[in-house]
C-alpha cells in the first residue's frame, strides 16, 4: 500500500515493510536509490532525527523476488505556528477583507478555516481566487457599535493553531493610496508646483464617504518633508518650493470621519518652472552668470508644520 506519511523535523521514523516479518530479507530504496544496510533493523527501516531533505518516496521490495511490498511518500515538516491575520476595509462601506500568512513555512500542506462573528451573527467570508490566503466579507450592517470577532484556524497533518482578532467596524477602515498623482510646474512661477491626484478606484462612494488627503513634499537635496493636510478636493498648489530644485511628492488618503491613513502613494517628481536663459553678448553673459549663482538657493518664507496627530500608513 502506498500513501503519504507526515513526520516532524527531528523525529525518529520507523517503517515496516508492509506485512513482511521482522527477519525477512528485504531491500529499501529512497527515490529509487538503495538505502544502506546501516539504516535497517531486520526488515524495518529506521530514520533518526529526520530533516527536510529526507522527504521522498520510500519503497520496500521482497529480497529474492523484488516484489514491491510497501511504498510510502514521506513528507517531513512542522506543525503550524500561530498565523498572522489582518483585516481591513479599503472599500468602505461595502465590506472588508481579511488576509493571513504563516510566520514560518511548514513544508507540508495546510488548510485554513476562518470564522467571522458580529454580535450573535456568523458572517460568510468569501474566499478570493487571488490572492490565495484572503477572503472578503460584505457589511450587512453599518454604524454598529458591536465588535467583529474573526478567528483563523490553520491545520496540517502535524498540528493545529489559531489566532483571533476583535475590532470595531470603524477601526479597520484604511483606504488604498490616491492614484494618478501628477505634479507640474506653473509657468512663470519659479516657486510653485501644481499637484493633482484621484481618489483610489477601490473607494466606492467618495461623495457620501469623502476622503481627506495628506500631501508631503521635499526637494531631493533635503531629507526633511513638508506636509499639508487637505480636507477636500484632489489638487493642491505648492507655493513655497525652492526655485529650480527637483521635488519628490507623495499623497495619502483617509476617510473624513473614521479609520486610519492609507499608505503613501507612488512618488512623483517635478521641478518648478525656471526662466529660459537669454542669448546675451559675452560681456553681459559674464555679469549675468556671477549674479545668478549667488541667489538661486532661497529657503521658503514659511514651512508648514504637519499635524502632529497624523501618522500615515500606520
Amino acid at each position: 500500500d502506498s500513501h503519504i506519511q507526515y513526520e516532524r523535523v527531528g523525529a525518529d521514523v520507523t517503517m515496516k515493510c508492509g506485512s513482511m516479518d521482522w527477519d525477512a530479507a528485504v531491500t529499501w530504496t529512497a527515490n529509487g536509490t538503495d538505502i544502506d544496510e546501516s539504516h535497517l533493523n531486520g526488515s524495518y527501516l529506521i530514520l533518526k532525527n529526520v530533516d527536510l531533505t529526507q522527504s521522498g518516496q520510500y519503497s520496500c521490495y521482497e529480497g529474492s523476488s523484488w516484489h514491491l511490498k510497501y511504498q510510502t511518500y514521506l513528507r517531513v515538516g512542522t506543525p503550524p505556528k500561530e498565523p498572522v491575520l489582518m483585516c481591513r476595509s479599503n472599500n468602505y462601506p461595502k465590506g472588508f477583507y481579511c488576509s493571513w500568512h504563516l510566520p514560518t513555512p511548514t513544508y507540508i500542506p495546510n488548510s485554513f478555516n476562518i470564522s467571522v462573528i458580529h454580535g450573535t451573527r456568523e458572517m460568510v467570508c468569501e474566499k478570493d481566487a487571488f490572492p490565495k490566503n484572503r477572503c472578503h466579507i460584505r457589511y450587512l450592517q453599518l454604524f454598529s457599535t458591536v465588535k467583529y470577532k474573526v478567528t483563523l484556524t490553520v491545520t496540517n497533518a502535524l498540528g493545529k493553531n489559531s489566532t483571533t482578532l476583535t475590532f470595531d467596524e470603524v477601526a479597520i477602515v484604511k483606504p488604498d493610496p490616491p492614484e494618478s498623482v501628477v505634479a507640474k510646474p506653473v509657468p512663470n512661477n519659479p516657486r510653485r508646483l501644481e499637484v493633482s491626484w484621484q481618489n483610489p478606484s477601490s473607494w466606492p462612494d467618495p461623495e457620501s464617504f469623502p476622503l481627506k488627503f495628506f500631501l508631503r513634499y521635499r526637494p531631493l537635496i533635503l531629507d526633511q518633508w513638508q506636509h499639508v493636510e487637505l480636507s477636500d478636493g484632489t489638487s493642491h498648489t505648492i507655493t513655497d518650493a525652492y526655485a529650480g530644485k527637483e521635488y519628490i511628492i507623495q499623497v495619502a488618503a483617509k476617510d473624513n470621519d473614521i479609520g486610519t491613513w492609507s499608505d503613501w502613494s507612488v512618488a512623483v517628481h517635478a521641478t518648478p518652472w525656471t526662466e529660459e536663459p537669454k542669448h546675451l553678448t559675452t560681456e553681459a553673459q559674464v555679469t549675468e552668470t556671477t549674479s545668478a549663482s549667488t541667489s538661486s538657493f532661497m529657503p521658503p518664507p514659511t514651512t508648514k508644520i504637519c499635524d502632529k496627530g497624523a501618522v500615515v500608513g500606520s
Binding site: P93, L142, F143, S144, E207, S208, F209
Partner: peptide, 12 residues
C-alpha cells in the same frame, strides 16, 4: 456612531 451615520445620511 450616530454622529458618523448622520454625516453620511446628510451627504446622501
Amino acid at each position: 456612531q450616530w454622529a458618523v451615520r448622520s454625516a453620511r445620511d446628510l451627504r446622501q
